[in-house]
């Protein structure tokens, strides 16, 4: 495993830690899109089906279980925890996320590497992950007040896929990997969706101002 991949995974893990910190210690999920979080549960459930069919490493299995467990836990907190659920910005979380699921299903049925259950679901999970942040970005744009933890969470989540792109470049050049259009293009789209957010996040950080996205 190369450094970019490890840093990518750690950034992803850290983003979840930051979100759990907000939920568990601040007891708030204000500004967090439940729709995006539900999409992540679907992404992990469909991608990590291979937990039952193929073993890669202890690291791989452990990380998959952590991503599955934490994503389900976060949705549980946002839906059912008696304090946390009251902080959910429901009225602003308006993105039609079913549309993203439908779009990803159609795309995965049309464009995949092999037509079997695991492969199509894996492809679906990549397409859905690429766009899963959209409800969250829309919610941020509607939020007047983006707290630090929420801003950091979204930043880390975006940085993770950007680091994965470097990992793919590295594997292609150094490990003789072939072209892998499906994850690469999905990853590029996913990272590109954050471009605007990255710009305002870094700007607010440089100017030591509170993060605010233009409406």
């Amino acid at each position: 495993m190369n450094l970019f991949r490890l840093l990518g995974d750690m950034t992803h893990l850290l983003s979840i830690v930051v979100l759990l910190l907000k939920i568990r210690t601040v007891k708030s999920c204000a500004g967090i899109s439940l729709k995006t979080q539900e999409l992540y549960v679907i992404v992990f459930l469909t991608r990590y089906l291979d937990l039952f069919t193929k073993y890669y490493s202890v690291y791989n299995t452990a990380m998959k279980l952590v991503f599955l467990g934490t994503s389900i836990g976060i949705v549980w907190y946002m839906r059912y925890h008696k304090v946390v659920k009251q902080t959910y910005s429901k009225d602003e979380d308006t993105f039609k996320h079913y549309f993203l699921i439908l779009l990803s299903i159609i795309l995965a049925l049309l464009i995949h590497r092999a037509f079997d259950v695991i492969e199509v679901l894996w492809t679906f999970s990549l397409y859905l992950e690429a766009v899963a942040i959209l409800p969250q970005l829309v919610l941020l744009q509607k939020s007047r007040n983006i707290d630090t933890l929420t801003g950091d969470y979204v930043f880390l989540l975006g940085a993770y896929r950007a680091l994965y792109i470097l990992n793919w470049v590295y594997r292609f050049l150094m490990e003789n990997h072939k072209f892998r259009w499906i994850p690469w293009i999905s990853g590029l789209v996913q990272t590109a969706l954050y471009a605007d957010f990255f710009y305002y996040y870094i700007k607010s950080w440089k100017n030591r101002e509170k993060l605010k996205l233009p409406a």
Partner: peptide, 10 residues
Amino acid sequence: DEEPEVHDEL
């Protein structure tokens, strides 16, 4: 050549 590369990622 169905090597599992990329699938070993998260």
